[in-house]
């Protein structure tokens, strides 16, 4: 699996993502700076977590106007799988590659803790290694993860199986509507999620519940 990790000024979980991709696929991802205007050929594009542009204006808003995002849109249209985690999700949402928006947490505070997630849809190449409705652990670390969308859009998301993960066991850490933790685009080649599966892939992390996400991709894309 050839993967790309996009780096913006302020990306800070890029190293965590690089480590996870390298350890699970045995191949280091190619790093692409946000000012590039072309993308190398790849099986997977990943936008990692962090505080691109310091979250100024709105989280992800400025990064979504970086030159590389045009290329990501082109790749998305061609069906290339794209994964956005945390700030990556915010950027994909600001770039309108994913539906909905991520507001400030209901608590108004940054939150870092391990929550429970339910795998809502395992019929995709991001989630095939999970069982449907499987409950997994996963860390979150964000200030703006409160997912919101209009009632119509929400209905369409639910009807079209676009919800990937939901916060489970009353662990919704941010007030997200319908406990939504991660969503797909309509074609299901783009996944955005607030939790950090890359921080739960080995014994040292205290669990490996994040691993199947990367293993699903590895199996589908190799």
């Amino acid at each position: 699996m050839n993967s790309i990790v996009i780096q913006f000024p302020g990306s800070n979980r890029d190293r965590d993502m690089i480590a996870a991709l390298s350890k699970i696929s045995n191949k280091a991802p190619t790093l692409v700076w946000h000012k590039e205007t072309s993308l190398p050929k790849a099986d997977l594009i990943v936008i990692p977590g962090g505080f691109s542009y310091g979250d100024y204006l709105r989280a992800g808003a400025i990064a979504a106007r970086s030159p590389i995002v045009e290329e990501i849109k082109n790749a998305a249209a061609k069906g290339v799988p794209i994964l956005g985690v945390c700030n990556g999700f915010q950027i994909l949402s600001e770039a309108q590659l994913l539906p909905g928006t991520l507001m400030r947490n209901a608590s108004l505070k940054f939150v870092c803790k391990t929550v429970k997630l339910e795998v809502t849809n395992n019929q995709t190449f991001f989630t095939s290694k999970y069982q449907k409705n499987q409950i997994i652990s996963c860390p979150v670390a964000h200030h703006d993860g409160n997912y919101f969308t209009s009632p119509d859009q929400l209905q369409r998301l639910e009807d079209n199986q676009q919800v990937a993960f939901r916060y489970a066991d009353n662990t919704n850490p941010n007030g997200s509507i319908n406990d939504i933790a991660g969503v797909f685009n309509e074609q299901k080649n783009i996944l955005g999620l607030m939790p950090h599966p890359e921080n739960l892939i080995e014994k040292a992390h205290g669990g490996e519940d994040g691993r199947p996400l990367f293993e699903s991709l590895l199996e589908a894309l190799t």
């Binding site: 979980r13 190293r15 996870a20 940054f110 870092c112 803790k113 670390a141 921080n199």
Partner: peptide, 14 residues
């Protein structure tokens, strides 16, 4: 207090 701090970033926290 500490749930408002990122305690996990860098993936090395034991």
């Amino acid at each position: 207090v500490w749930e408002q701090y990122d305690t996990l970033i860098q993936g090395n926290s034991l």
